[in-house]
Write a protein that binds this DNA or RNA. Sequence first.
DNA 1: AGGGTGACGATCA
DNA 2: ATGATCGCCACCC
Length: 115
Amino acid sequence: MTKKPADKPPISIAIAAVIRRIPRGKVSTYGAVAEAAGCPKNARHVSKVLNQVPGLPWQRVLGSGGRISLPGEYGLEQRFLLEAEGVRFKGRRVDLASFEHKFPAARRLRSTSRR
DNA sequence: AGGGTGACGATCA
DNA sequence: ATGATCGCCACCC
């Protein structure tokens, strides 16, 4: 008993959870999501999670620099949805300085901001 | 167990 | 600026 292998480390779950925290009208990047989820080098895996887990705001996840990575019509769809949320593009990119969502530093409680 | 994959990211030409 | 290559790493067969 001592220990049961329980389950495998659901890093995908962590990633999905992070994505779900992106508020409407804001965006994030694969790299930022991966980092917030605890795996800074797994930006690639984020894209898989988006495909695997339905119900996620997939459109709010962009490539580095705020560029849309999704090719084809879905890429256009993504841009359309984002603009509908109020996210503005500068050419082919989103102005991350204004629209990137900053995830709370995974600090152990003691919320950094709490009055 | 081994190997291929990918909505990436950074770097180089 | 655009395009090509390499590096990374969990997931899937």
